[in-house]
Amino acid sequence: MDTEQRIRRYYELVDVGDVPALVELFDHEAVYCRPGYDPLVGRAELERFYRDERVIKQGRHTLTTTLVHEDGAAVHGTFEGTLHDGRSVFLRFADFFTFSESGTFRSRDTFFYAPLV
């Protein structure tokens, strides 16, 4: 699986809720930075986040742009879904990935388009 396929597979796995498979795409010591959370470090933290902390109940990512360059990638897209409290959400996001030598995700940084200033 090439890098872009791995990225697309990640979002597919998130959308169907396959936590064990999506966590396997990350390096053992991967770092995930997401607004509103302390950095998640390692597969165990990622699994805990996706099982217990993520405020999203269900939804679908649509990728509009994926740019891959050497050991990194930038992704832009939208997410539409439902939160655990029942609210509907539609938002734009950007993710930035870096990769280990084996091709797993070494890091991921997520940004949401939200009015703050």
Results as ranks from 00 to 15, higher is better:
T3G: 00
E4G: 05
Q5A: 14
Q5C: 04
R6K: 15
R6N: 11
R6T: 11
I7T: 03
I7W: 02
R8S: 06
R8Q: 13
R9A: 03
Y10K: 09
Y10S: 04
L13Y: 06
L13Q: 05
L13D: 04
V14G: 00
V14H: 00
V16P: 02
V16F: 02
G17Q: 09
G17W: 06
D18C: 09
V19Q: 01
P20R: 05
P20L: 05
A21W: 02
A21N: 03
A21I: 02
A21L: 07
L22Y: 05
V23R: 08
E24N: 14
E24I: 05
E24V: 07
L25H: 02
E29G: 12
E29F: 09
E29P: 03
A30R: 01
V31W: 01
Y32H: 13
C33V: 14
R34Q: 13
P35C: 06
G36N: 10
Y37P: 00
Y37N: 07
Y37R: 11
Y37K: 05
Y37E: 11
P39I: 06
P39F: 04
P39D: 04
L40N: 00
L40F: 02
L40H: 01
V41A: 07
V41T: 13
V41F: 03
G42C: 08
G42R: 12
R43V: 04
A44G: 10
A44M: 09
E45S: 15
L46D: 01
E47A: 14
R51I: 05
R51S: 03
D52L: 09
D52E: 15
E53V: 08
E53Q: 15
E53R: 12
R54D: 12
R54W: 12
V55W: 07
I56A: 04
I56N: 00
G59L: 02
G59R: 04
H61D: 05
T62L: 13
L63C: 01
L63I: 15
T66F: 08
T66N: 07
T66M: 09
V68N: 01
V68H: 02
H69V: 12
H69I: 10
E70A: 14
E70I: 05
D71T: 09
G72T: 12
A73Y: 06
A74N: 12
V75C: 05
G77T: 08
G77C: 06
T78L: 10
T78M: 07
G81Y: 09
G81Q: 02
T82H: 11
T82K: 14
H84W: 12
V89Y: 10
L91K: 13
R92I: 03
R92M: 08
F93T: 03
A94H: 04
A94S: 15
A94N: 08
A94R: 06
D95C: 10
F97W: 14
F97M: 11
T98Q: 12
F99L: 00
F99M: 00
S100P: 03
E101P: 15
S102H: 13
G103S: 04
G103Q: 01
S107F: 06
S107L: 10
S107C: 11
R108H: 08
R108K: 15
F111Y: 14
F111E: 07
Y113D: 14
L116P: 08
